[in-house]
Design a protein around this nucleic acid. Sequence first.
DNA 1: TAGGCCATCTGGTCCT
DNA 2: AGGACCAGATGGCCTA
Length: 169
Amino acid sequence: MSPKEQCADMSAPKTPKSTLKFRGIFPTGNFQSKESSSEHLAQKKKCATLEAGRSRLSSDVQRGKRRSKANDRERHRMHNLNSALDALRSILPGLPEDTKLTKIETLRFAHNYIWALTETLRMCDQQASNLPEHTGSLTEWDCIRQFPPKINCGQTTKIKSKLGCVGIN
DNA sequence: TAGGCCATCTGGTCCT
DNA sequence: AGGACCAGATGGCCTA
């Protein structure tokens, strides 16, 4: 296959859009599709270079302006993402004042906390249905007060030492 | 000093 | 066409 044909081949979508969209984080951390293999990336770079040589933008100035605009948007987008993470951190319970979880720790902690709350509600339902006369008067908040969730912390030693709890996964 | 975490830049891809 | 999203690269800062 000639370089030109290879490039044409690479630009063609290999999978439906719906499946391309998902680039999840897999627990094993070794997920690698064909799209991200080093060989494929190297070929992609080669093609990009060829393409760049063929069709330069009308002017470098215009390109520079567009790029810096895109950089601004990207910065703003990441700041928004960080604000959302801060908001998430702020509602996670049991953290000492000076603690700032990393991004991954925040997500794992939140995951575990949601899991713990879900378990609590499940236990509560069970408890209520075991009452001699099932009145159903227990609210979810009563329940959480009665059975405070046991949070499973993230697996890092940092969190374990700060919270003094045992992590899972 | 190595390794972890982070912010930023960048180019590619998808969507509107 | 332009914006949003994504992942790779890079360099700075911090800590064990």
